[in-house]
């Protein structure tokens, strides 16, 4: 014990911690790349095929590019936007060789994603403006991985030195409460569980109440999956939100601080509808994109970034607990285009 405190006093511990962090970051980057392997392969082998035998970017190349982007779930609207940008560029520069296409595409996609002027986060930290407890409400359609994401989020916040409390608000789907309880045990955080078939807003209320009493740093509340077309269930979400707001004068007026919409990366264009409807009902503030490792089509990230002001904050690139990462647009574009030259 004494040695430990001495080390700590000497600041050695901090150095150790920092180094560890850098390592973690590096590891995360390689995981991100690995997780995106499928996307990359799909994307670039196709691009190289699109320009075979071509020296200049012409209509045929653009047509092929359209196919590639649409096939990657970027979406028709965003695809047409990207094509238009490249077209404009070809017009301006008169001649664009196909060897430059990778770079141009990278620039245009990066520019498109950066137009969405939200700030990227860099770690699982509580934002500066937040008065604790940092309350996160997790919403989404069925089967996107809400509960799993919560388990992983809880661990990441915990590893960064925060105390976390979970709220088992999915009181509808069979055994959903049990599923979250197992996660709570696994990552060793407390959980408020009122059992099944309880009004979810009651769970939310009790969780925040308990969190205040315990003085925790982060509160994450689970909700049942619901399709965005079910108006009654969407209204239930609004109610949960209003219930949490009852603690506004005790914490901060604008709570929950985060309404996290979880989207499955293999979802197609319906993701846009989901984002729209959930935003209407609960003022979604951030998106977590799960299962990115399983799809060759990560393009929905580009589509979502283009169509929404809501930032993609977290991505899931694997099954491991540490495979939940904070999302950084530049890193994403870089990872997407890394090794691209080798392919083409």
């Amino acid at each position: 014990m004494r040695v430990a405190s001495v080390i700590k006093d000497m600041g050695l511990f901090d150095i150790f911690k920092k180094k560890n962090k850098e390592e973690v970051q590096k590891e995360q980057e390689s995981q991100l790349e690995a997780g995106l392997t499928k996307t990359k392969q799909g994307f670039f082998s196709k691009i190289s095929r699109a320009i075979v035998g071509k020296s200049t970017v012409d209509d045929e190349v653009l047509d092929n590019l359209e196919e590639i982007l649409v096939s990657s779930d970027v979406g028709v609207e965003t695809t047409l936007k990207i094509i238009k940008r490249i077209q404009d560029r070809v017009k301006r520069d008169k001649y664009v060789s196909t060897s430059e296409l990778n770079n141009i595409l990278r620039e245009e996609i990066a520019a498109l994603m950066m137009e969405n002027k939200t700030e990227d986060v860099h770690d699982f930290v509580i934002p500066a403006h937040v008065k604790k407890p940092y309350i996160i409400l997790v919403v989404g359609v069925n089967g996107v991985g809400k509960t799993t994401t919560i388990g992983k989020l809880a661990l990441q916040f915990k590893l960064n030195g925060n105390s976390v409390l979970l709220g088992a608000g999915d009181t509808f789907r069979a055994a959903a409460v049990d599923q979250l309880k197992i996660w709570a045990e696994r990552v060793e955080v407390p959980i408020v569980d009122l059992g099944m078939n309880v009004e979810p807003s009651t769970v939310a209320y009790k969780t925040v109440e308990k969190g205040l009493e315990m003085g925790v740093d982060v509160i994450i509340i689970d909700t049942a999956g619901r399709l965005q077309t079910k108006k009654g269930l969407m209204e239930e979400l609004s109610k949960i939100r209003r219930t949490i707001q009852k603690f506004g004068d005790k914490i901060q007026p604008d709570i929950p601080h985060e309404v996290l919409l979880v989207l499955d990366a293999s979802t197609g264009q319906n993701a846009i509808q989901q984002a729209t409807a959930f935003t209407e009902a609960t003022q979604v503030s951030a998106i977590a994109l799960t299962k990115l490792d399983g799809t060759a089509k990560g393009g929905i990230v580009i589509g979502i970034s283009d169509q929404f002001k809501i930032p993609v904050k977290y991505i899931g690139v694997g099954e491991k607990v540490t495979d939940l990462q904070v999302f950084n647009r530049m890193k994403f574009v870089n990872a997407l285009f890394k090794d691209a030259d080798v392919v083409s």
């Binding site: 649409v70 096939s71 990657s72 779930d73 359609v141 089967g143 499955d264 293999s266 979802t267 197609g268 264009q269 319906n270 993701a271 399983g294 799809t295 060759a296 089509k297 393009g299 929905i300």
Partner: peptide
């Protein structure tokens, strides 16, 4: 298969 699956449905 989830009816909302995108372009990857075919590969899967």
């Amino acid at each position: 298969v989830d009816a909302m699956t995108g372009q990857d449905a075919v590969n899967t």
